[in-house]
């Protein structure tokens, strides 16, 4: 749905914000770009709708190469790409309904159709009773809901989210993320979001791209990455002391957490299992964990084979 090819952005002051970025966002998925501030993720997102012109490279959204379009065509294409912002970017002089109607005005939708569509949108984000309020009367979470309603007004196929929950408290963040997930499922909306919060990636993303210094370090489906030895994502989600001490085994498991793996290991292979550290997380509702253990005894080698055979990722240091 979104294809970025060899994207480079060098600012006038010589700062290289993007250093050859390739990224694909599949239709209907939520992809999170994770990185610290200054990693270039904001520039990356702004290049997708060409708020920022890449120095070189191509941007293709929904089959159209935006970077090749003229001004008028680009405007039309932008109407099919929704965007939500960290500080909401609402018009303070307009009501909630007026804000949601704004993209429709730009798209030239007649007034009577606008009103009906706005009601529908506010219903969708749960703000039907706030139509006449102005943004200053709303909480942060409500403001972002208005932002989302506005972003969806013109019926976009793609939603770009620029740190949309960074200014919100944890509980509100969860409710906004739940809303985004629901829109993704119900409307088939493709979402590209940037965030510095692992929590956002863990709760709603199907795929992730980890960015630093203007490059993408690794990208892919989260489930695939977790099954990949040495993935940076795994280390980020489950921080354990690195490098692993010699003789230790690090086991990453997804979905099999309810099985008594370790105790059956002890019984079957007559080994001692000493747990050194570990953590368990929920990724999109499924338990995923990472455990660092020391396995001692003559059955140790067989035990490792058994674990691998169960489909766990076993890394021996």
């Amino acid at each position: 749905m979104i294809e970025l090819r060899q994207l480079r952005k060098v600012y006038a002051n010589g700062v290289v914000a993007l250093d050859g970025v390739d990224l694909s966002v599949r239709e209907g998925e939520i992809l999170g770009v994770l990185g610290r501030s200054g990693a270039g993720k904001s520039t990356l997102l702004r290049c997708v709708n060409l708020l920022e012109r890449p120095t070189s490279g191509t941007v293709t959204v929904d089959g159209r190469e935006l970077s090749a379009l003229g001004r008028g065509e680009l405007r039309a294409a932008r109407q099919r790409i929704g965007m939500i912002h960290q500080h909401f970017a609402l018009l303070s002089s307009r009501t909630v309904a007026g804000n949601a109607a704004f993209p429709l005005e730009i798209a030239g939708v007649p007034r009577d159709q606008r009103a009906a569509r706005v009601r529908e949108l506010l219903e969708l984000v749960g703000l039907a009773d706030k139509a006449a309020a102005v943004p200053a009367q709303l909480s942060g979470g409500q403001k972002q809901r208005v932002g989302i309603a506005r972003a969806l007004a013109a019926g976009p196929s793609v939603l770009l989210s620029d740190e949309a929950t960074s200014a919100l408290d944890p509980a509100t963040t969860q409710s906004i993320l739940a809303l985004l997930r629901r829109l993704n499922t119900e409307l088939g909306l493709t979402i590209l979001l940037i965030t510095h919060e692992m929590q956002v990636v863990k709760s709603i993303c199907d795929s992730v791209a980890i960015m630093s210094d203007g490059r993408i370090e690794e990208a892919g489906r989260i489930t695939d990455l977790i099954a990949t030895p040495g993935a940076a994502l795994t280390r980020e989600i489950f921080p354990l002391p690195e490098p692993a001490p010699p003789g230790t085994v690090t086991v990453t498991f997804a979905g099999q957490a309810d099985e008594p793996v370790m105790s059956s290991l002890v019984r079957k292979f007559d080994v001692d299992v000493n747990v050194l550290g570990g953590s368990l997380e929920e990724l999109r509702g499924a338990p995923v964990g990472r455990l660092r253990v020391r396995i001692e005894g003559k059955g140790a080698a067989d035990a490792l084979g058994y674990l691998t055979g169960l489909g766990l990722l076993v890394e021996v240091a």
Binding site: N49, L51, L74, R75, A76, A77, R78, Q79, I81, M83, H85, Q86, H87, A89, L90, L91, S92, S93, R94, F102, P103, E105, I106, A107, A154, L160
Partner: peptide, 29 residues
């Protein structure tokens, strides 16, 4: 007028005249 708000309008595909008439002037009224 908040720069982010102007950008939001640009991201929606607003014409420059629409940005002046619907964003800059009403927001700074």
């Amino acid at each position: 007028v908040d720069r982010e708000v102007v950008e939001a309008a640009q991201a929606m595909g607003a014409r420059r005249l629409a940005i002046v008439g619907k964003v800059l002037l009403p927001e700074s009224l």
